[in-house]
Design a binder for these strands. Sequence first.
DNA 1: CTGAAAGCGCTTACAG
DNA 2: CTGAAAGCGCTTACAG
Lengths: 334, 334
Amino acid sequence: MSSNVTIYDVAAASGYSLATISRVLNHPEKVKPATREKVLKVIEELGYRPNMVARGLASRKTTTVGIIISDITRASVAEMIGGIMDISDTYDYSIKIFQIHDEIQVKDVMRNVVAEQVDGVLYLNDELSEAATEEIKEVLKQSNIPFVFTNVINEDKNTASVAIDYLKAAYDMTRTLINQGKKHIYLLSTARRYTVNIAKEQGYINAMQESGLEPMVFRTSGETSINEVHFKEFFQNKPIDAAIAVRNSIAVSFMNVAIGKGYKVPEDIAVASFQNTRYAVLARPKLTCIDIPVYDIGAVAMRLLTKLMSKKTKDVGNTKIILPHNIIIRNSTN
Amino acid sequence: MSSNVTIYDVAAASGYSLATISRVLNHPEKVKPATREKVLKVIEELGYRPNMVARGLASRKTTTVGIIISDITRASVAEMIGGIMDISDTYDYSIKIFQIHDEIQVKDVMRNVVAEQVDGVLYLNDELSEAATEEIKEVLKQSNIPFVFTNVINEDKNTASVAIDYLKAAYDMTRTLINQGKKHIYLLSTARRYTVNIAKEQGYINAMQESGLEPMVFRTSGETSINEVHFKEFFQNKPIDAAIAVRNSIAVSFMNVAIGKGYKVPEDIAVASFQNTRYAVLARPKLTCIDIPVYDIGAVAMRLLTKLMSKKTKDVGNTKIILPHNIIIRNSTN
DNA sequence: CTGAAAGCGCTTACAG
DNA sequence: CTGAAAGCGCTTACAG
């Protein structure tokens, strides 16, 4: 429960005052090199580590960042957190995770993140309504907690964010298929209207309409087994020669059903997807997909947040970051 | 940075002292119902939420739990954290995540978790050497921080843990295949010797030897693309009629290569696996596997930890919990 | 460059 | 049942 040795012990053992010990840790340049050495030596000997809670109270900085997520078991969420943590480690920030499964919890969870005194927030939850999202922004602003939207689209020019251009990504992917001569291209999206998926849909629609083709969005649940049922109903002799799924799991599920029905992939139906997870590579055939740098999104967001938190300079530069994406062609398309 | 309203404000507005406000929050039974009501009302009106950092300092309890992991992007790790969080939410514990990628970091990270004053620790890192693991246990014990090993095997009868009986699970799976008449059954394991995989190997070996069959353990990297290369080399006309993989990704990768080489699954080679992730269901054919209740392991571990942390009763009961597993037969075996 | 003192926002014996 | 006071372990003006 307690790291026994405190700053008092270091002070006593070194013959200096609390203030000096604190200074060698927090403002080493303000202390004479000789005494700095001595103090450091005593700290080392005693194995002293400042109690972060006490430090947090006194300095009003907890060096802790809150991450607000929907569901940690989503591969992209976990991957983003991986990117976040690798950066937060180098900056010596701790990470605290808050999940919001249901909009009912918004108020409560937000009170919590405020009460926890986090220095900043990374907002990764893309499953909430716009109203709920705005409410969260409001709380954060009122509490003066810097935050960045991480892989969550937010129009507001003033809210820091990092994402990729999903609209363009979808557009590019659709164009690629159109250029291969595909005409009946479906978009397989989710029933729930995640902000990123809305952007993907728009990009797809733009590309289709631009070529005089009819956009067809098919919505399915995120749950794997339900997908299959949906997809089976789907194959009632509709003309289709390509499909773009917003997620790997949807793409693979679709592909399996199609192949089960006797279609050949990619000859009869080309299949493409977003993200580049292990599903894409473990699928047979391997999936053509848009490579979304999920890890980087997390890492870049965390780095941006550190700038926002150390508001020494008002000029943190651009706070609306778009990371590049690219298309990886594999065997599920020609 | 700050939730403006403090306990002083509540005291002033309600006409009671700090002590009373604090009591209605922490020991409501010690305060007269009438005043409790009044205070609660003021708290509500002012939207007061106690500063958790200050509370942590004063009470020496942070109501936060540290989770020590290797790699959050591993599906089972993320899933366990999901289970942990759902429980910690109901107990109003916060979660702080610490990762240890490399043994070099052990000392530093552990100093950190101690400095952060977490009330308890969930240890999920199964990638560390025994020596490093013992060192971690030592630090935790010295700092008097209760901890539970979560899906990490530890022989020590005194360390609380929750896991499944991997040895028996592997034994059962192997027996199942043997009973189906398989004779050349391989175990596809990892190069790195995770504690859980060592147990799986032992169970497999036991079952094979018991039936007079020769155990054959094939080790591969965890990295998907390398698996494939390894597996391709692997198929140099070895007699094989079944394989059990310690992970879904290994199983799927193996299956794909086998099918690519003209083998029929399950007719020529039956394939079984551990875990029951979405990979298992998205594979073609679908994977027979051991269903490991990963989410539950996390949830149960967290629940056990809460008991350990509230040491009112010395009798927390059994602290070595083994959760049940079961085999799910699908189309990758007959 | 260093120290004494106040303060961060709570909790918890100790009195009454 | 309630309040005054000390204390949790730090940091940071303020003096010197």
